[in-house]
Simulated assay, not measured.
Amino acid sequence: MNLAGEHILTVEQFDLPQLERLFEVTDRMLPYARRQRTTRVLEGAVLGNLFFEPSTRSRLSFGAAFNRLGGHVSETTGFAFSSMAKGESIYDTSRVVSGYVDTLVVRHPEEGAVSEFAAATNVPVVNGGDGPGEHPTQALLDLYTLCRERGLRPGGVGGATVAFVGDLRYGRTVHSLTKLLALEDTLRFVCVAPPVLQIPDDLAASLRQRGHRVDITDDLAEGIREADVVYTTRIQQERIPEDVSISGYQDRFRIDAALYERVCRPGTTLMHPLPRDSRTGRSELADDLNLHPELAIFRQTDNGIPVRMALFALVLDVADQVDDTARDVAWHHPARIGVADTRTVLS
């Protein structure tokens, strides 16, 4: 499928050849994402960034990706600062804003709401997260990161063991990534969570129907012992129903350096979609892993820029024109972004 002009609402739109095409374009975006080169391919284009739910990484990442292609970003955050606070419908909001911009990114707390935005417009709409539903671009950057960390390409991940740890029921990033990984040949999914936060039954059944092995456990050490990749998430407290108790679960699913060294295979990749909860008694991925070479979480979030750049370039049909206006940047940029980075080299 050609992505030009298409809405990006779910990972179920993608097949392996499309993922390979997306990742090939993403690779070509790396010099621009890493501040080595600049392009004006989207000069004059406007992105509408509509975030009706709190966000740091996704909102800034979408905006930075569009900016690095030469485009301009207009945005609004929260219901209080939009006309929805006056009773305006999703349909009207979408139709009105579409008259101002060339593409829309929408995050909304209600599952299915982003699809309602898309149904009202021919301007491409990208799902930036819809409640407990999906977060397709997060899954795309997660898979891109997994492939880069393991030296793989789409279609070559089969045979791996991936452990998902934490809130697997309400964590939409888990839902989206498992659906992408389901496209691969036989994988082993190890789902590590307490029963009330375990992966939804229908999603586990779908993975099994595709021929994958799905193991369910609440034993953290055993769950990650044979994993090639461990993908952990925070507990989504803002989405959990009031009648569901999670008291005492946080510390039981905490990965720190001692646990990693004791039970994980050498070279096991650690991933997390962020934010991680660093508060005492809630930290699911401890700070003492910050210098660990297999901690991929910051490389993972950095990869959000080139992946989203590639997606915008494909949706707006300029992927093969990016280099036409390219030039080297003139400003200073550091060789490594974080003071503790051991792998991310920008130049």
Score class of each variant (00 low, 15 high):
residue 213 R to E: 14
residue 244 V to G: 00
residue 210 R to A: 15
residue 230 V to T: 02
residue 241 P to M: 02
residue 230 V to N: 00
residue 186 T to M: 10
residue 246 I to H: 03
residue 189 F to Q: 01
residue 222 E to G: 15
residue 201 D to L: 10
residue 211 G to E: 10
residue 246 I to V: 15
residue 210 R to F: 03
residue 185 D to T: 15
residue 230 V to P: 00
residue 211 G to H: 09
residue 237 Q to I: 12
residue 187 L to H: 06
residue 245 S to T: 13
residue 238 E to A: 11
residue 233 T to W: 04
residue 181 L to R: 07
residue 215 D to G: 05
residue 222 E to W: 10
residue 233 T to V: 11
residue 247 S to H: 13
residue 227 A to S: 02
residue 233 T to F: 06
residue 234 R to W: 05
residue 246 I to R: 03
residue 202 D to G: 07
residue 222 E to N: 13
residue 231 Y to S: 01
residue 250 Q to C: 10
residue 252 R to S: 11
residue 200 P to C: 06
residue 194 P to E: 12
residue 243 D to Q: 11
residue 211 G to Q: 10
residue 201 D to Y: 11
residue 185 D to A: 13
residue 246 I to D: 08
residue 195 P to T: 02
residue 200 P to Y: 07
residue 230 V to Y: 00
residue 185 D to I: 10
residue 204 A to P: 08
residue 225 R to N: 09
residue 186 T to W: 09
residue 183 L to G: 05
residue 200 P to Q: 09
residue 249 Y to A: 12
residue 254 R to I: 08
residue 254 R to P: 02
residue 229 V to T: 11
residue 194 P to R: 07
residue 194 P to F: 07
residue 190 V to C: 08
residue 250 Q to D: 15
residue 252 R to N: 10
residue 184 E to R: 07
residue 207 L to E: 04
residue 253 F to C: 08
residue 187 L to Q: 04
residue 220 L to G: 05
residue 223 G to V: 04
residue 240 I to Q: 04
residue 193 A to Q: 00
residue 199 I to S: 05
residue 224 I to D: 01
residue 233 T to E: 03
residue 238 E to L: 05
residue 236 Q to C: 05
residue 207 L to P: 04
residue 251 D to S: 15
residue 240 I to V: 14
residue 202 D to N: 13
residue 204 A to F: 11
residue 195 P to R: 12
residue 209 Q to E: 13
residue 215 D to M: 11
residue 234 R to N: 03
residue 209 Q to R: 15
residue 181 L to Q: 04
residue 248 G to N: 06
residue 195 P to K: 13
residue 254 R to E: 09
residue 211 G to V: 11
residue 209 Q to P: 00
residue 218 D to A: 11
residue 189 F to V: 03
residue 207 L to K: 08
residue 242 E to I: 01
residue 215 D to E: 15
residue 186 T to A: 14
residue 189 F to R: 01
residue 209 Q to S: 14
residue 232 T to D: 03
residue 196 V to C: 10
residue 242 E to M: 03
residue 237 Q to Y: 13
residue 245 S to W: 09
residue 220 L to V: 10
residue 234 R to A: 03
residue 218 D to V: 05
residue 209 Q to A: 14
residue 217 T to F: 06
residue 182 A to W: 01
residue 249 Y to I: 12
residue 203 L to D: 08
residue 235 I to F: 07
residue 224 I to C: 01
residue 225 R to S: 13
residue 203 L to H: 08
residue 228 D to L: 08
residue 184 E to H: 11
residue 194 P to W: 09
residue 219 D to M: 09
residue 208 R to E: 15
residue 192 V to F: 06
residue 200 P to M: 07
